[in-house]
């Protein structure tokens, strides 16, 4: 739900301000790749109506966000491709593919894709964090969006602890990816929490 909320916050922000200054389209592209790799199972496995609906919403809203930022004026006119230039194709996709291949539980296409998607998701926030570090001053809605985008993984960790004790559930790759992902946010969270505590604008060092 937090993940969904962060997407809705971002959509709302783009529609309201008609600007995507401070938003990394490259992060959304990473997520689009994550979702395409992971949700291939839409075609051959049914888990629940909730699960299917969320997958469809995540994929379609993420592609819509990319479309808005890259191609749909007036938002696309504000997209700064020079600032948002983190080369994830080299730095994230390659390593995620290699890790996906060597850490997959079995060497099948769905399993390798699923594993690669977990590793890629764990670092997908990097283009967004690096963009914000260049700009330093973070708009309120952008700060809420990034905070919820990080918080959802932290709540997964709580759920994993619960499921471990309640059902003996084990998910080593998911756990490791989730810890890396949450770890990357800790620094941002700190500055976000401080800005909220003192009621000031979020400014990154």
């Amino acid at each position: 739900m937090l993940h969904l909320m962060s997407i809705l916050l971002l959509l709302w922000k783009l529609k309201k301000s008609k600007s995507c200054v401070g938003i990394s389209c490259r992060m959304q592209e990473c997520y689009a790749i994550v979702f395409c790799l992971r949700y291939l199972d839409l075609f051959y496995q049914f888990i629940s109506v909730y699960n299917t609906a969320m997958k469809v919403v995540f994929i379609s809203s993420t592609f819509y966000l990319i479309f808005l930022m890259r191609f749909q004026p007036p938002v696309s006119a504000t997209y700064d491709r020079t600032a948002d230039s983190f080369p994830y194709e080299q730095y994230l996709l390659g390593p995620a593919a290699v890790l996906g291949f060597i850490s997959a539980e079995e060497w099948s296409i769905p399993e390798i894709f699923w594993t690669a998607s977990i590793w890629l998701e764990s670092v997908s926030i990097l283009p967004q964090l690096i963009l914000l570090q260049q700009l330093r001053e973070v708009e309120n809605l952008t700060a809420e969006f990034v905070a919820t985008m990080g918080a959802y993984r932290f709540f997964y960790i709580l759920n994993w602890i619960y499921r471990y004790f309640a059902e003996g559930y084990v998910n080593w790759i998911g756990w490791l990816g989730g810890i890396v992902q949450t770890g990357l946010y800790v620094d941002f969270f700190y500055y976000y929490a401080m800005s909220k505590w003192y009621g000031q604008k979020l400014v990154l060092p």
Binding site: D41, W114, I118, W172
Partner: peptide, 10 residues
């Protein structure tokens, strides 16, 4: 049966 690890998550 039981879902494989992580496959019932988003």
């Amino acid at each position: 049966g039981k879902t494989a690890q992580g496959k019932d998550e988003l």
